[in-house]
Design a protein around this nucleic acid. Structure first.
Ligand SMILES: [Fe+2]
Ligand SMILES: [Fe+2]
Ligand SMILES: [Fe+2]
Ligand SMILES: [Fe+2]
Lengths: 220, 220
DNA sequence: TTAGGGGTTTCGGTTTGCCTAAATATTTAC
DNA sequence: GTAAATATTTAGGCAAACCGAAACCCCTAA
């Protein structure tokens, strides 16, 4: 039961993140790509995490979190998302600027300070990108969502979350007044051009790149 | 010119801290004791820091910061003290609880976030223990101070700073209403008992242990 | 059904930062 | 002025995380 390191926390968080919006468990090579490290490094760490009882892994198979691993992972995700929320609400950051800072602070902040933030922010349920903030007990309130890129023409819904993977896209979307909570309707499927068109409540039309549509999740 | 690590930052900060209130440069063994690591580890890191131009060191001699090292050290001290101030002013911490948390966060916070804190706190000049917060350019506004343990009977002054090394003593002092800014007069030198007596402005008398008197600095 | 080919693991190596034990330099004490 | 005590450095090791190259497993497609 030794205290987990920043590296281990990032592994767990990334494994968790992969299954948060889709069911297939992650494979070592995908995990390596997401973390930006070599596959052989993943093999090593996976062995350690499995030995600590945080991960299930049969050689050459996919990676799944144990209950203990899931709790550790959601704890990191909770820290990450609360920090992002704090940065936006208290410290004057924009939602496209918070991810990198949170990526570091999530490994440094104490439980005491985290709870002080949580209280100060009034126990927020979602981070600036619309992602649910796990409770201290690891439970997550997740609404069913579909990827905008896979929505059919005529689909109407609210934007539930936008992945913070690409901050340039977040900036573009903000400039287009699209963010978590925005209502929109798909008015045209990817036709000859591969842009996706949506209509905003005020009647305005926006064209979204496939890259952007692949990061936006809307209510079903 | 590579980015300095948390370990290197702690070495520089501790070397700086040793000469902040007294002139003698620090020796490797004292540095090792302060950092809680083995002397041989200090030898190694000192070689690296000297090679990076942050430290001056002749074998078997004391350690002194170069101008570059001083700048790096005050940058860490600035981060540490601003974080402590933020924890007290914004996050509901008491002054005896902030040091450990700041010890970690000082290595994680970005310049961007540090400046946001600084602005939010209105560019504070002192941390919760009375220590001056270095400016971004490394300059420090330090008032001359003498250790209470070395003050003569009759000496009157204001408490300028109290070292945050021992949080139990900080709690005791707070319970005795003694903190940075308190006015006091030494009314009795360490006599048969080794306690130091001081009178507060309201006439109340406090007896201080030698350990406490060795952490309190008063105006000259 | 067997040969690729891609994903995974093993192996040996690197860096950082720490350790203990032993050697060496310096200071102090007689 | 030398001998003991103390301070510092050297030498050899270890653990955490990473790497690239090579071996290995597994699945598929000819
Ligand atoms: Fe994020
Ligand atoms: Fe992280
Ligand atoms: Fe402190
Ligand atoms: Fe530190």
């Amino acid at each position: 039961m030794k205290q987990s390191t920043p590296a281990a926390e990032d592994y767990l968080k990334t494994i968790y993140g992969h299954t948060e919006w889709q069911p297939e468990p992650i494979t070592p090579s995908v995990l390596a790509a997401r973390l930006g490290i070599a596959p052989s490094s993943v093999t090593e760490m996976v062995k350690k995490l499995a030995a600590s009882g945080l991960l299930r892994h049969v050689p050459y198979g996919p990676l799944t979190l144990t209950p203990a691993g899931l709790l550790a992972a959601t704890a990191v995700v909770r820290r990450h998302r609360l920090i992002e929320t704090w940065l936006v609400r208290d410290m004057g950051y924009h939602w496209d600027e918070v991810h990198e800072e949170a990526e570091i602070l999530e490994h440094s902040i104490s439980d005491r300070l985290l709870d002080a933030m949580d209280a100060r922010l009034d126990r927020p349920a979602h981070d600036p990108h619309g992602d649910p903030i796990p409770a201290a007990d690891g439970s997550v309130a997740r609404e069913p969502a579909i990827l905008l890129a896979q929505a059919t023409a005529g689909h109407s819904g609210r934007v539930l979350r936008i992945s913070d993977r690409d901050s340039a896209i977040l900036r573009d979307l903000a400039a287009d007044s699209i963010g978590p909570g925005s209502a929109l309707t798909v008015i045209e499927p990817p036709g000859t051009t591969n842009l996706l068109c949506v209509r905003l409540p005020d009647g305005q039309i926006r064209q979204l790149s496939p890259a952007a549509a692949g990061l936006i999740w809307v209510s079903a």
